[in-house]
Amino acid sequence: MTYIIQTIVIYSLTYSIAVLGLSFVVGYAQIFVLSQAAIFGVGSFTYAVLAGRNITTDLLLVIPIAMVIGGAMSLVTGLPLLRLGGDYYIVASLAFQYVIVQGLVNWTSLSGGPPGLFAFPSPTILGWSISSNMDFIYVLVPILILALGSLLWVRRMPYGRALVAMADDEVALAAGGVKADALRVSVFVLAGILAAVAGVLFTSFLDVASPGDYGITESILMITMVLVGGARSLIGPFIGAVILASLPYWLNLVHWSVYMTGVITGVLLLLVAFFLPDGVAGIANSSIRRLARSRSKVRLISAEQSAGDT
């Protein structure tokens, strides 16, 4: 039982890291990215190749390497593609997603072809071997806190304020002298870097990297986590990841069909479109706002009454 809970926690934490940056991209930069899983896969294969060929298993080395590769790939694709608006970008990101995964499948000498790579030495940090589930949680929690903290910090910087402004009024932002394109690309790169980090952690835990696991379905699952949780909050993607990341795992535990994941994802997306445009975090936000409004109304009424008394 503890083992099951630990595994679910690990899945949720890993996917939270993977989609945290994505929430900035969807919520503020307003780009609908359907290639997040490909970058996640690139991170995965970074660990698989480095550890599988006995180059290094030290996460302090592997993670920065994955960050550079994931960030560079996002930069190279984001720089030209993000200029394209709306639907064009969606189609371009799907094509890009396909190219990366098919490229991995075809590059057999690197990726091991369709079955992928498996059975690596367990990851280490400065000689400490991370082997038990609890060890993984000890590694994941600080990384998630670090990622969350840096995103919060980014949002409070002038850069982050520009980001929030971009979501509201891009023209005003341009009038203020901020280049929206540059902002958009940098947010996209940030999301790619976090996805690559999550990919490393995912593969070092699961001990397998298979190109088929990073396809379009997985990208849709990731964007669903962001949308279900709520794109414009940092807690939102976390909620989404907790709900959705471990879904295949516990469906397997209760012996439900593997197709239930797809059914649930699809229904959740439809529900979001019809009833929850701001996600689960949106409900919380609006209820807080409603509460605040009713309180201020009370204050207003009592102020009026006290004015009438005198």
Partner: peptide, 17 residues
Amino acid sequence: TTIFIAALGLATLIEAV
């Protein structure tokens, strides 16, 4: 975008069923 999300949901649902 929201209409696209609904379409994506429908596609995902059919691909599973």
